[in-house]
Each structure stands twice: as structure tokens, then as C-alpha cells.
Design a protein around this nucleic acid. Structure first.
Lengths: 232, 232
DNA sequence: ATGATACCCGAACGCTTGTTCTGTGTCAAG
DNA sequence: CTTGACACAGAACAAGCGTTCGGGTATCAT
């Protein structure tokens, strides 16, 4: 019986509305009408849909153009709740360098960057195959410590959370014994792991299976922007 | 007097319509109404707008949902005429490797890939600063010849057409004397050019100003997708 | 009990919008 | 000159759509 009172904030219904608007927009290239929203969110009256839209507008999740058909527009803020558009917003969680530990991320909640400032947009079609993009995150490389992975200072590494890897996948690993983070191709051999640099002219390093090795994620993509000219 | 007869194909008016629909969609997140189109394209009758929309639909530039307000949707094909959306479609013109010459591109026409198959989508916000993205093109690296630029086999290099460069910019150059294409940071010195590899552990090569050196473009971005695992 | 608040319905009104029909002028081919 | 394709205007109609208003039912603090 009793519906749980959600006091102020956002309710399931609000999210349902946002999700549907987003989904409809994605599929049809235009926002839904009020009646279309009501139908899918199970609200039989247009006034109630309007009621929710007003609230969502006040909360900043959408903008409306008055007395214009389909005048609903999701704002950036919605990306904190559902992913919108053809572009994926991947949060940049922090730097990555040899000497500093890789960021831990709690399994469930991963997106929701407080400010959308530290995120990059990636076209969905640019992602490998059917990478749904859930939980992807990005790190910005600091310093030259990843040159053996053909990755430069300033490059952005897009990662997928993982604690295991298959042979040949590039992973971010933390080596507690060396106190070092590194990006390498991962191979499991007889009694050791082989960590192969992307640069074919460089030699692999070997880790015995008895030694600790923590896989923190798989590398999905590397992006290098040539914003500013090289100094020297 | 006489309007030039455009026989079959697309007329200026058609393009005006497509451009406006695209622009409106970009700005408002929804397609324009028929009357809004007419207003901006200088057509005073809704039936005439409808007339053009029918033609554009037949030509495959847009799809319509009948008796649905703002039921106009631009198709991929429109990207051959105007760039749409938050994503930029950059055509992949071909491979790049040390031994093969860089593709020549005629100044005006650069986009319009016949099939949209060989193009990648890049979020506009991912591009450096106010790079408008006009005339950008991409090349796919073949082989290991660009490792000194920290660029791998299979990487995608996004380029901007250019024949000159400022110091510190990474450019694609063709060295006729060596019959070689290469990606290097460009520096003009007293009586020579210094071509500096991105990999800081590698040494530059020098080209006397008397020797030929053709700058083919500036490197805007490098993208590496980790689609499939490494074989070895 | 009482009022406040949140959530919801249905209907009516009027503007917005897509659709359709009739008509006009131009231009090229027959 | 006639014919027909083409580009366009204008008006009228019906359906789509946002807005508004009057009413209803729970839940909760007072």
C-alpha cells in the first residue's frame, strides 16, 4: 500500500519522465509531446505531465519553450541521471602516472561528476563495437612515464572498470611491490604474467604469479589532443 | 529575370531548407515546424514548404513522420551537404605510412565522402578550442613507421589542411628526397628545419632549407581504439 | 478533526501544426 | 499557340498539442 513519501527531491516518476524524453529524443530526433509522455509514463492526464515538467524545469533538468509543440529540452544536468544524445560523457577522474596509485572506484556509482567540467564527450560510434559505455571513466596522463605504452604527457586514457583481463588486452595495473602504475598489454603465461609495452621496440616485464598485481581496468581508447604547440 | 533552371537535382532552396532545419535542430533540440521553415527560407505558403520537404524526402535527405508536429528528421545523407549535430563527421581519406605519399586534397571540396562508411564521428567539444572543423580529414596509420611520433599501427590521425606551420606544431610532412612521409613537431631554425619526434627519447632530424619539404597538414588529434587484443 | 501538501483525473479552450485543394504565372517542348 | 511540368500563393480544415481550471484522494503534521 502506502507510497513512500519522497519529501522534496526527485521521485521515480521524475526519472521515468526524463528517461523517456531522452529515449524518445534519441530515437526520433525530436522531443515527445506531452500526451506521448503521459502514455509511456502511465499518466492519463496531460495536466499531470505538465505538473511534472514544471517541477523538472524548476529543478533544472529541462527547459521548456512555452506554447510551442514539443518544446522540451533536456539540460546538461540530466547527464547526471541518464546519458543523453549520441555522445557519451565520460568523467575524467584524475591523473595517471607511474608513481601515483590508480583511483579506486566504487562498483555501482561511477558517473555523476559533480561538475560536468571534468568530462569529455565521445561520440558513441567512436567507441569499440557494442561498448555500452556504462561506467567508463577517463584518466589524464601526467608526465612521460607511459611512453613505453606509446602514450604521451597529457593524453587521455578512456578505461573500463575491470579486475581481470584476457590475453592481449591493454590494462592499467598497479604493482604494489614496485609502487607503480603502468599501462601494458596483459598476457598470462605458465607461472608468470607478461606485461608487454605497446611500443614494439621495448621489452616486456615479467611478474611472477606469486607477486601481487592488481588490474584496475582495461584501456578502451586513447585520445591525444594537439591543442598547443610543443614548447622546446 | 529568368531563374536558372536546375533541372532535376538539388536547388539552392533545397539546401537552404536543409541548412535551416539543421541549424534549428542544433539550437533548439527539436525540428522546426513547417511554418518556421517557411519564414526563414522565405516561402510564404506552408504548402510550398511541404512541397520541398516531399522532394527532399524522396531524395533521401530527410524522413518525415506523417501528421506529427515537427516530424522532420535529417538523415545521414545530409552530412554530405551540411554538418549536423554535436558530432563532426570526419572522413578517413586513406592510410598513412612512411613509404607512401600523403593524399592530396583539392582545396574547396574536402568532405562529402561518398559513403559515410569511412568516416569517424568526433564530438565537437572534443576538438581543440574553436576548431570549426571545416575540412578536417583523418588518416589511418599503417605499420610501425610512426612510433617515433608515439603513434601506433591502426591509430587514427585527425588532420587539418595546411601548407605552413608555426614552431612547435605537429605536422605531416612529405620529404621528396627521402620519399618519406612522417609526423613530427616542426621547428624553423637558422638555415634548417628541425623535425622533432614526439617521443622525447628520440633525436630530431634536420632538413636544410635548400632541401624540399612539403607540409601537408597539421595534426589536430590522435585517436587509438583498443578494439581487439594484441595478437602476440 | 483539520488543514496543508503532494499527487492525480478529465474536460474544455484555443493556438499550433500538418494536410489538402484551388489557382496563378513562368518556361520549355511540341 | 497549346500543353505540361514546375515553382509558388492562399485559404480552409482537422488533428495535434500546450494550457488551464475545477475537482478528487490520499498522507501527514497540527
Amino acid at each position: 500500500m502506502m507510497m513512500v513519501r519522497k519529501s522534496k527531491g526527485i521521485t521515480d516518476k521524475h526519472i521515468k519522465v526524463l528517461e523517456f524524453v531522452n529515449e524518445y529524443q534519441l530515437r526520433n530526433g525530436r522531443p515527445p509531446s506531452i500526451r506521448e509522455i503521459g502514455e509511456k509514463v502511465n499518466i492519463s492526464s496531460t495536466s499531470v505531465v505538465n505538473y511534472y515538467l514544471l517541477q523538472l524545469e524548476k529543478m533544472g533538468y529541462l527547459e521548456r519553450d512555452n506554447r510551442v509543440s514539443r518544446g522540451v529540452r533536456l539540460t546538461e544536468k540530466v547527464n547526471q541521471i541518464v546519458q543523453t544524445g549520441n555522445t557519451l560523457h565520460v568523467p575524467i577522474l584524475g591523473p595517471i602516472a607511474a608513481g601515483i596509485p590508480l583511483p579506486e572506484l566504487q562498483p555501482g556509482v561511477s558517473y555523476t561528476t559533480d561538475s560536468e567540467a571534468d568530462a569529455i564527450a565521445i561520440a558513441r560510434s567512436l567507441l569499440p563495437a557494442k561498448e555500452k559505455g556504462d561506467g567508463l571513466y577517463a584518466l589524464q596522463v601526467q608526465g612521460d612515464s607511459m611512453i613505453d605504452a606509446m602514450i604521451n604527457d597529457g593524453d587521455i586514457v578512456v578505461m573500463k572498470p575491470a579486475t581481470e583481463a584476457r590475453n592481449g588486452e591493454m590494462v592499467a595495473v598497479w604493482l604494489p611491490n614496485n609502487n607503480e602504475a603502468t599501462l601494458k598489454y596483459f598476457f598470462k603465461e605458465k607461472d608468470r604474467y607478461r606485461l608487454q609495452p605497446a611500443n614494439p621496440t621495448m621489452k616486456p616485464i615479467y611478474i611472477k604469479k606469486t607477486e601481487p598485481l592488481e588490474i584496475k581496468g582495461k584501456v578502451v581508447m586513447v585520445i591525444r589532443r594537439m591543442d598547443k604547440p610543443l614548447a622546446a
